[in-house]
């Protein structure tokens, strides 16, 4: 059984259809790249999978671990092992990163039937992840994403992913706004988290990220549909000839912001 089965998925926002019949199958341990120009619907797909209410699903099914994913609340999806790394991580002044992570981790652990961590257990656990991801510990005590640089925010997303240990990670333009050094750091963090029991959907506009996070499959999204699927070489082809060679027009960015 596939981990994730998306069948003929349609979604719209404000009466405008952004996903017009997506089909995608992701098996355990696979990394799928979704590429597409601005406005192709790739961020919409990422957010719909995570349960953002802004988008109305108007047709199709999504099955995750045999369950009807679309019937679950965003928090239940997270507890079932879905993780979305945001394109624009949200700043939350007044809540420390560490507290936020502890609250998140304990709800997830509780859901999985594991005992909740107390402050000491949590510190031990988090220290391990800090070392693994080469995070600066100072970031833990700062309010969530507040005053973080673009690179720090993206690293914080991957750090959260390391802490929550998802089964399916969706990375929404994790490369956007990063210089090459920051990109390498983020990508190496992601690569450390790859494994046979963890699948990933990597959404990106540019091939560059895929030099560092090498996918098993590449899908090209245009106007709300997957127009081409292939192996990792498809990304290189796209990079060389551009979206236009595939008969795809770049349109204005229509998603990501309410």
């Amino acid at each position: 059984m596939a981990l994730l089965e998306i069948r003929d998925l349609h979604a719209q926002v404000g009466g405008r259809e952004l996903l017009k019949g997506i089909d995608l199958t992701v098996n355990a341990g696979e990394v799928h790249a979704i590429m597409g120009p601005n406005g192709s619907g790739k961020s919409t797909l990422a957010q719909v999978l995570a349960g953002r209410e802004l988008y109305a699903v108007t047709g199709g099914q999504v099955t995750y671990q045999g369950k009807d994913l679309l019937a679950l609340s965003p928090e239940d999806r997270a507890r079932e092992g879905i993780f979305l790394a945001f394109q624009y991580p949200i700043e939350i002044p007044g809540i420390s990163n560490q507290y936020f992570l502890k609250a998140a981790l304990n709800t997830v652990r509780k859901h999985r039937g594991l005992p909740e961590f107390d402050a000491m257990d949590f510190l031990d656990y988090i220290r391990e992840k800090v070392d693994l991801m080469k995070m600066e510990t100072a970031l833990l005590n700062r309010p969530v994403n507040t005053g973080f640089s673009g690179g720090e925010k993206k690293r914080n997303e991957i750090f959260q992913m390391a802490v929550l240990e998802p089964t399916l990670a969706i990375l929404d333009e994790t490369d956007s706004g990063l210089d090459i050094d920051a990109l390498k750091l983020v990508a190496s963090g992601v690569n450390l988290l790859r494994g046979p029991q963890r699948s990933m959907i990597v959404v990106t506009h540019y091939q560059r990220l895929l030099d560092y996070i090498v996918p098993d499959y590449v899908h090209v999204l245009a106007e709300g549909r997957i127009v081409k699927s292939g192996g990792k070489e498809l990304a290189l082809e796209l990079e060389k000839s551009g979206y236009a060679a595939f008969g795809i027009d770049e349109v204005e960015e229509a998603v990501g912001k309410a």
Binding site: F86, I92, T107
Partner: peptide
């Protein structure tokens, strides 16, 4: 903020 709410929920924190 609806986006902040979604961000917390997407990490497993109940509404």
């Amino acid at each position: 903020d609806a986006e902040a709410l979604f961000y917390l929920q997407s990490r497993g924190i109940g509404k």
